[in-house]
């Protein structure tokens, strides 16, 4: 697998949208810096076990968004993305992830206070881990 993309087939979010989102996240987080090559549509389709039609759609969207560019005969690469755009995206992808978690909690009939306390707990634990890791 060339890209660490994980699809959730049970999600309501369409597959091409998931791919788009995760590649954006990899670019925004700096894991895929400008100029890094992306797998071909066919190769990524094989890895993700989806059709090229779906992958092509995701790549097209990314290209329209200015995140990637395709050079005929050479392949697809990460494009230079403006810092402002990156920041905006980072915010939106964080809020998206938290939204997902809150949705799950609500589905399990958690109250607002319960959700808040779970959030604090997770935050504390991850911070701890982070410190433990760096020391």
């Amino acid at each position: 697998m060339e890209l660490p993309i994980k699809l959730s087939r049970d999600s309501r979010v369409p597959i091409y949208h998931q791919i788009e989102g995760q590649i954006k996240a990899l670019i925004v987080s700096g894991k895929l810096p400008a100029g890094s090559p992306l797998p071909s549509i066919r190769a990524l389709s094989k890895d993700l076990e989806i059709s090229v039609i779906t992958t092509r759609r995701a790549y097209q969207d990314l290209e329209y968004g200015g995140f990637i560019k395709t050079t005929q005969g050479k392949g697809t690469f990460v494009a230079e993305v403006e810092v402002k755009k990156m920041e905006k995206l980072a915010v939106s992808s964080v809020s998206e992830a938290i939204e997902k978690g809150v949705e799950t909690a609500l589905r399990h009939n958690y109250s607002v206070d319960e959700i808040r306390s779970v959030f604090e707990e997770v935050l504390a634990r991850l911070k701890d881990n982070d410190r433990g890791g760096s020391e």
Partner: peptide, 8 residues
């Protein structure tokens, strides 16, 4: 004839 995702 189905596109794979459509079928899934």
């Amino acid at each position: 004839k189905y596109e794979k995702e459509e079928l899934v």
